[in-house]
Design a protein around this nucleic acid. Structure first.
Lengths: 192, 192
DNA sequence: TCACTTGCCTAGCAACGCTAGGATAGATTC
DNA sequence: GAATCTATCCTAGCGTTGCTAGGCAAGTGA
């Protein structure tokens, strides 16, 4: 049975290779450059191999998104755990979120801009996505304010961060006041 | 010379037809369905005719975006002009913005999600885009708060609205608390 | 009437996502 | 050790995309 196990291991390894390569390619040249042909060439297999691991390009994007969600959650928790006041925690959360979006634009797109075939905000939502939201909720719940439901409050704060992240990166917002905008968000939205 | 004038008129008319048709098709079936072939068929001309008006598909998206920017500005100004208090004006602005995004998803995408080849937040930014931002600024400047630059404040508020609009429509936010989220944004961000 | 310009269409290119079907290499059986 | 069977992977190709070259025909001016 060890032959079968070895093959399964190799197969899993190749799947990780596909996701990693897709991510690298997307970060280097954008998702438009991630074609099935180019991706296949980079992993040194033929195109149809991709389809033995994923239903299609969409599912590959989804796999990158899930990887990103896990990292985002880790990043946010790491940033907030080092802060001592509620105000500092919220600011750290905002900066960690925007940093992630800035330094991993392709992954961020896979998560929140592109169609990766994932379901959001539902029962069958994949665990990494739920957990990323939970990471935000943990810090934001304590600054929602009296009588304000932490869920919708987190959603609103998150939406604001998402707007800043996407509009800034798309060149729709001038970069000079970036820090000022974050301060505004933290000081006004959070009840600290 | 009247022959030449007639031809110019007809040409301008056909250009409007292209933009209008692209917009209709995009609203009906999404931008993915707006292929040059389908678009050409709908306007009852051949594909290359499109390229005698626009450099490519991107520029057609850009044209739809500019049309949308004008309408968005009109909508926001109409909504705010009917409100009597600062609080009401900001709330009306937020609702008008989100209504526009909800009822014209394809146009909204052309404006803020897709690449229409337009430049934003710069000197050479097309007038309709500048004016749409100005429409937001007019109402939001009066609630920025003491010592807060209205520009970055408007940018921040806008980003929050944009986040709500896109995440809601993409199914990333549950629809049930939509109104609650708007209230939060208005009550907290604006100094009313 | 003839030349010329203008405007449009047919046909085709390279690249896309995805798939059918055949070849080959390895495991299993006798 | 030879034969068969299975699983794995590749070649080739389909239909579609954005975009363009080249030719035809209708209308303009001499």
């Amino acid at each position: 049975m060890s032959v079968k196990e070895r093959k399964e291991r190799e197969r899993a390894e190749r799947e990780r290779l596909i996701v990693r390569t897709a991510r690298e390619l997307a970060e280097q040249q954008g998702w438009d450059a991630v074609t099935t042909r180019r991706l296949a060439e980079r992993i040194e297999y033929s195109q149809p191999v991709l389809y033995s691991h994923f239903r299609g390009k969409r599912e590959i994007i989804g796999a990158v998104a899930l990887e990103g969600a896990t990292e985002l959650a880790v990043g946010v928790r790491a940033a907030t755990s080092g802060a001592n006041s509620r105000r500092e925690r919220v600011a750290a959360l905002a900066r960690a979120y925007l940093d992630f979006a800035e330094h991993n634009p392709a992954v961020y797109d896979a998560l929140f801009q592109l169609d990766g075939g994932l379901s959001y905000a539902q029962e069958d939502t994949p665990e990494p996505l739920k957990d990323a939201f939970a990471a935000l909720l943990e810090t934001l719940a304590e600054v929602a304010g009296d009588g304000v439901d932490p869920g919708p409050f987190t959603e609103t704060f998150w939406a604001a961060l998402h707007g800043l992240a996407t509009l800034t990166r798309a060149g729709r917002l001038p970069p000079e006041y970036a820090e000022h905008r974050v301060e505004l968000l933290v000081d006004r939205l959070a009840m600290v």
